[in-house]
């Protein structure tokens, strides 16, 4: 039977802890379901107290020793506290001291979990130099990320999403001739197929170029998809303003010479009530924005044609 993302993480972790003498840190790891069953019950696991600044400092200190610790942050929102040792120490040590702090930060997100349990904050770590940043959503992608971590000596921010944990499938890009290229990140990747179906019924053809590597950003496959369409939409599970989607859209505009828009969460606090709901753009919302940008792009192209 095909492995899920959760099983893949567990297997990689077990191998690292048992055979590499690696380390795994986190809060409430050994209770509460072993982090959605992604952590094995084996040696080299250290339970952290509830101290979200010093914990990350301790983990970075352990990383200096070369044991390549994995630290699990159960909700990405806690990064506002935990990020200080990461951005102030781990991200800089190679540039300033010439010694690296290879730490594997598993930062988890969850759907509809309220004010401080639902955020996707990979954008913060793309902003600061020194990190490799990714958001794997499939078993093979997770393997690739782990391999990348082990062959480099940079700290790695892994923006996980619980929505992906049961996933066994690889998510495919397609480069067909299309009207719009959808460029999804994180759990929005699971919403695009539905959006593609909705839009196909309206005669708007979309192709899809998935984003797993956020930094260093890998754009060859995206440019290939964009080349065979008229415009693009980058969709992220994080906030739109100053977020990954905007940053990537901007770089794609210049690399492809095509209009590319960003779509992310609204600029408002996230809660659990209907009024405060502010989740990853779903298929309906993606379709709505695609219609809008497609219309604009057609108009623009016609105008250009007329001028010519």
């Amino acid at each position: 039977m095909a492995k899920t993302v959760a099983e893949t993480i567990k297997e990689i972790t077990q191998q690292h802890l048992e055979q590499n003498n690696g380390l795994l840190f986190g809060q409430a790891i050994t209770a509460v379901g072993w982090v959605n069953n992604t952590v094995p019950n084996c040696r080299n696991i250290v339970e952290f107290p509830m101290a979200d600044v010093s914990n990350m400092g301790i983990a970075c200190g352990a990383a200096i020793s070369g044991r390549r610790p994995i630290i699990v942050i159960r909700f990405q929102d806690f990064m506002w506290l935990n990020s200080s040792p990461l951005v102030n120490y781990a991200a800089k040590s190679k540039d300033i001291f010439g010694t690296s702090t290879p730490i594997f930060v598993r930062s988890l997100a969850q759907k509809n979990a309220g004010c401080v349990h639902a955020a996707v904050l990979h954008s913060l770590f793309m902003h600061m130099p020194g990190f490799r940043v990714c958001s794997p959503m499939t078993p093979n992608e997770y393997q690739e990320v782990w391999h990348d971590f082990m062959v480099h000596d940079d700290p790695m921010y892994v923006s996980e999403h619980r929505t992906s944990f049961g996933n066994t499938e690889e998510l495919k890009n397609n480069y067909d001739q299309a009207d719009v290229t959808l460029i999804p990140i994180s759990d929005s990747r699971f919403n695009v197929n539905e959006a593609v179906r909705i839009l196909a019924k309206e005669n708007i053809a979309c192709n899809v170029a998935h984003v797993m590597w956020l930094k260093p950003f890998k754009n060859d496959h995206i440019l290939k998809a964009l080349a065979s369409s008229k415009c693009g939409l980058v969709i992220d599970a994080g906030f739109e303003i100053c977020g990954a989607a905007q940053s990537i859209a901007y770089s794609l505009i210049w690399a492809s010479d095509k209009p590319v828009k960003a779509l992310g969460l609204y600029d408002k606090s996230v809660g659990v009530t209907p009024e405060t709901e502010n989740a990853t753009p779903d298929a309906q919302r993606i379709a709505e924005v695609v219609r809008e940008i497609y219309k604009k792009t057609i108009k623009r192209d016609q105008y250009k044609e007329n001028v010519r």
Binding site: L23, V46, V53, S54, N55, M56, G57, I58, A59, C60, G61, A62, A63, I64, S65, R67, P69, S84, P85, N88, Y89, K92, S93, I96
Partner: peptide, 18 residues
């Protein structure tokens, strides 16, 4: 360390652990 006072205390602690 990089200038945040006391930053070296958790770092040293993690080093001793690892």
């Amino acid at each position: 360390h990089h200038g945040l006072i006391g930053e070296n205390i958790p770092l040293a602690t993690g080093h001793a652990l690892a």
